[in-house]
Design a protein around this nucleic acid. Structure first.
Lengths: 225, 225
DNA sequence: TTCTTGTCACCTAGGTGTTAATAT
DNA sequence: ATATTAACACCTAGGTGACAAGAA
């Protein structure tokens, strides 16, 4: 069995409608997909991998109303042609069950890209489409005719709270704020600590940028449906 | 067969008498021990590991002369009691021959410590002693009674140019200068680029520190024997 | 006197959202 | 109008030797 780590954080994002940035160079997921694993044969070899399947066959589109004070998702038509269905093997694969079970397994090397010609082995997704991450455990069968048993030698785990919309720029400002609040690498955009003010901004950038940005996204903006 | 990477750099250090810093928390080696491997069975599994053996049974001692303007090594007596002879497995172990051979194998996660009670799995060495790094390739024998064949299932490679003295602080200033010149992480101590001056130094630090330091180590200082 | 330790400025390496410019 | 891209300031994380203070 498998237990999703940071479930509370995933739930918080999922409630708002999780968005994950995709870039040409590849972008990590946040939150990172991490699991604790139980019940493996400690001495057997396993491969751990992830893939991403479309949640529906729709393409989404962002509509802003009330002079940018709120926004919501609309269906914009049928999904774009499916991308190459790549998988991401956990870099420690293959490893013994004992190894996998003795600590949290983290997919922090996994990167998402919108570049259909990517040759870095990243996961290719269509922007403005919704995806469901899946986690697979493959038992490495030592038998010579192991191909025959492929069906029974793997198990798939799906956590619906890890669904997300792939985007090239955040659409829901509350998602942005939650990412800034919870991702250590975005600490530079937090404005909760007045001791850090005034900070250096680039020439041309507005002072009090963060406060301004916050005001564009009142609490009343509709959550993701 | 195995080919040592950066051999020219290793030779340069070896000529001066390579020194490697050991710390309580663990310090990486520089140069890093890296090899290219040839002639493995691409489909077989191998473990790659390193260990360190004393070059002699001597303890060394630094003697400074001419008011710090030069220094040399003297034998200071018998070696201290041998440290726990730890080994460092390359973190990708085990892996297929094909995997090992398709790129340079780098032991950049290996760290040296002088802490006899270290529980981070680092290599424990005695300061002021000389060591010879060794590289071992272990064939993972699929046979059930593989223990019987342990003798013939591994091969050891020794590169004498990678010998070094473990130290807690550099003794030979030419080693320091070569490290600064060749290790990217020490770029902050290079003074070859006058455009970077003046740099910020800590309160109390001398201005022109680097130039001062250089002057303490004239080219005439004796090389390591 | 020699050796060791802890802290520091200064780097490398790379993960963030922001922003302005561009593309669709 | 909406979506994408590239450059950027600002972080995390951690590898350097210098230095001062302490230990042997």
């Amino acid at each position: 069995s498998v237990q999703l780590e940071m479930k509370a954080l995933w739930d918080e994002f999922n409630q708002l409608g999780t968005e994950m940035i995709v870039t040409k160079a590849g972008r990590r997921m946040f939150p990172t997909f991490q699991v604790k694993i139980f019940g493996m044969d400690p001495m057997a070899d396993y491969m751990l991998l992830m893939d991403f399947v479309p949640v529906d066959d729709k393409r989404y589109r962002q509509v802003r109303r009330y002079a940018f004070h709120s926004s919501s998702w609309l269906v914009a038509g049928k999904a774009d042609p499916a991308t190459p269905g790549r998988v991401h093997y956990h870099p420690d694969s293959p490893a013994k069950g004992a190894q996998w079970m003795k600590q949290i397994v983290s997919f922090d090397k996994l990167k998402l890209t919108n570049n259909l010609l990517d040759d870095n082995g990243h996961i290719i997704l269509n922007s403005m489409h919704r995806y469901q991450p899946r986690f697979h455990v493959v038992y490495v069968d030592p038998r010579k005719d192991s191909e025959k048993y492929a069906e029974e030698n793997f198990k798939t785990f799906v956590f619906e709270e890890t669904r997300f919309t792939a985007v090239t720029a955040y659409q829901n400002h509350r998602i942005t704020q939650l990412k800034i609040a919870s991702n250590p690498f975005a600490k530079g955009f937090r404005d909760c600590d007045p001791e850090d003010w005034p900070r250096n901004h680039r020439p041309g950038a507005l002072p009090l940028m963060s406060a301004f940005a916050r005001s564009r996204n009142p609490v009343s903006s509709p959550a993701h449906q």
